[in-house]
Structures are given as C-alpha cells and as structure tokens.
C-alpha cells in the first residue's frame, strides 16, 4: 500500500515535469548529438574561417556573421575526435552559451526532434573522457542513440582562466 502510494506520487511528479523539449541534432563522426533549440541562433553553411594566431587550439578562428565577429570552436577537437575534411554538409551552428555567441563546426545538421523529459536518460559512459563532461543525457530513439550536449560546459572554468591568462 505504502509503496504503491509512493509510486503514484512519483508518477505524478514525472508527469508534471514531463515537458517536451526540442533539440537540434547534428552529426559528428558517426554519432548524433542534440542541442537545446533555445540555444541555437542559426545554422550557417561553411564559410572561410580566419584563424587567430596565438589563440587556444580548440578555437578554429573567427567568421563574419553579418558584420559581427563570431568565434568558431573546433567541435571535433573538443570531443576528442580526429580532424575531418570540410564537405558540402559541413555547417557552423551559431549558439548562445552563457550570454556569449559562438559558432561550432559540425559535420552536418539533421533535424529538430521533440523529446519528453522522461525520454532522456542520464549519460552512460559514452564517448571519450574528453566529451563526457559536457554530455547532459542521452536518448534512445528508434534504436539510435542521441547524445544531448550541455553547451554551457563546452568550456570549463579552467579554460576560461587559461584564456584570460593569455592576455
């Protein structure tokens, strides 16, 4: 009786929290990743990225986004993946993270998916150590694993420190 009670309670809680979130999915190597649609500003075709001498490795360079200078991060390096060639599908996803606009370079952008919160599982130890820390969860859709990325953790505090030390 008591356990049943608890169960229904839990069920109710889950229901009330079970909002639907939208995720933009993109491809890197063989994996599919998702970012919260609210954080995505726009998706651009690949354009010339001007490298910035002296910048950290994971910064590919800067691009001109309608007159604004936006920094582009090398997502592959960040995720501990090998370099890849630029193809027709290569996209720069402009995202807003921590009130800052940055671009991330990805192999391709696929679609926007709707996920209920209850469909998101906590992350198993997928991927490499490097990437594990900014994965906020995974979701299994039609037998395919979607890795949900927490953009605010793309850069750690230490890295921010490191950047400011360069100056």
């Amino acid at each position: 009786m008591a356990t049943e009670n608890r169960k229904t309670k839990q069920q109710a809680e889950v229901d009330s929290n079970d909002e639907v979130l939208q995720w933009v999915t993109f491809q890197l190597e063989e994996e599919t990743y998702g970012i919260n649609v609210m954080q995505v500003q726009e998706v651009l075709r690949y354009s010339e990225i001007a490298p910035v001498p002296g910048a950290p490795d994971y910064v590919l360079g800067i691009i001109n986004l309608r007159g604004n200078v936006v920094t582009v991060i090398d997502t592959r390096l960040r995720f501990g993946l090998p370099e890849n060639e630029i193809t027709d599908n290569t996209r720069i996803v402009i995202i807003e993270s921590d009130k800052q606009v940055i671009g991330i370079l990805v192999d391709s952008v696929a679609e926007v998916v709707y996920l209920k919160k209850s469909e998101i599982d906590s992350a198993p130890n997928v991927g490499t150590e490097e990437s594990a820390r900014f994965i906020q969860g995974v979701s299994n859709r039609d037998g395919e694993l979607l890795i949900l990325v927490d953009l605010d953790k793309m850069l750690t505090d230490e890295e921010w420190d490191e950047i400011s030390r360069l100056g």
Binding site: A50, G54, V69, T71, I73, L155, I163, G167
Partner: peptide, 18 residues
C-alpha cells in the same frame, strides 16, 4: 570589432574587422 570574450587577450591581436 572587438574579439569575443573567448579570444580577448589573444596576444598581438587588437581586434578584427570586416
């Protein structure tokens, strides 16, 4: 154009321009 927070303080770079 000032560089992003991410790149501010990059040695030798005062900013960028279009």
């Amino acid at each position: 154009k000032p560089l992003d927070k991410l790149l501010q303080g990059t040695p030798g770079m005062a900013g960028a321009t279009i």
